[in-house]
Design a protein around this nucleic acid. Sequence first.
DNA 1: TCCGTATTTGACCAATCGGTCAAAGACACG
DNA 2: CGTGTCTTTGACCGATTGGTCAAATACGGA
Lengths: 200, 200
Amino acid sequence: MPEMTRIQRRNRDVILGAGLKVFSQYGFRGATLDQIATEAGLSKPNMLYYFKSKEAIHNALLEGLLDTWLNPLRALDPAGDPLEEILSYVHRKIEMSRDFPEESRLFANEIVHGAPRIHDALSGELKTLVDEKAKVISGWAEQGLIQPVDAHHLIFSIWALTQHYADFDVQVRAVLDGKDPYEDASAWVDTVFRRVLTKD
Amino acid sequence: MPEMTRIQRRNRDVILGAGLKVFSQYGFRGATLDQIATEAGLSKPNMLYYFKSKEAIHNALLEGLLDTWLNPLRALDPAGDPLEEILSYVHRKIEMSRDFPEESRLFANEIVHGAPRIHDALSGELKTLVDEKAKVISGWAEQGLIQPVDAHHLIFSIWALTQHYADFDVQVRAVLDGKDPYEDASAWVDTVFRRVLTKD
DNA sequence: TCCGTATTTGACCAATCGGTCAAAGACACG
DNA sequence: CGTGTCTTTGACCGATTGGTCAAATACGGA
């Protein structure tokens, strides 16, 4: 659908924004079309004129999401400095948690519920990319450029640590008494992976 | 309610087990009473004879959960060996992820959705315990018994890393081609926190 | 055995859900 | 201005949901 009027493009964007907000907060089944329509400032039938079902909205969101989510990992450069490359990845990921927490929670929701709609992408696209980058990291370790690591689990750790701040935001803020966590979090994850990867 | 017949205790247990399974997989709104009743092998009205609403089942589950979940942290002994105490905590947590993944996902679901039902417990009971234990860990660091750390974020990291294997199970297994992750995960998190906490 | 209580169930209900449809209104273009 | 298309909406529908209720059944103690 390359042909779209201004109205179509604007309303699709508005709907996807509303869908992101509502789906990320209530989950797929917990979200209602009326909620999304209200959030988007449209009537329900009007919204369904642009996306023919609730699933269509959700799918459109997930479609773009996995790609965006994996971009920082794609950018990990085999020719770069190992420590610097990995730490850059960590920082890009934590910035995404800070700047796009709803996207993170939408993704988390899908995975926690068993990834019924993106399971193929996980064992396809995602696995392929992770395997490729894990090989790069393992190579670095074998050359002694970083400490020995289980590259797959290192990547899991980066995901877990960085996304935790978006997915478990309320818990983190409850413990920190509402204080913004991201400044300290950024410094902390830097320290963690620096210690894990270097000997000094 | 200290007075309970065998039937009552058995059926309450059966219902809670079914509720855990269904709620952890589909979320609160995604789960239906019919689903839970079928899973429990009871008729819906019969189930509602033991718990008067869907929320009552969910609340009963969450009530016991937070306590169980925090027990390993409570066990962290200020008088013990710092490295050993923290690593024990890490291992207990990863064992809980392996042995009780549904509990972990039920909890994750609640937090991701903004913790509408346990927010008070987070900023009360949870925060109090975390602050207390963070103080212990900070003390250890100041005495030079472990490397300098941000104790609160260290605890977040332990939660994030260990619970990731339960909450994001499908993703982990998709990447690892279905292979059981826990043996390597256990060794990996041990390595991670050993490197973070010690200098050598 | 009998009886009061605990347990179980089929039938039902009001509310909410995702989605449809026909018709009305806005817009672009000759 | 007219006309064909794009956009918007109120009214509505069948299905599902959480929950109720009266009646039937099982159980335990005297």
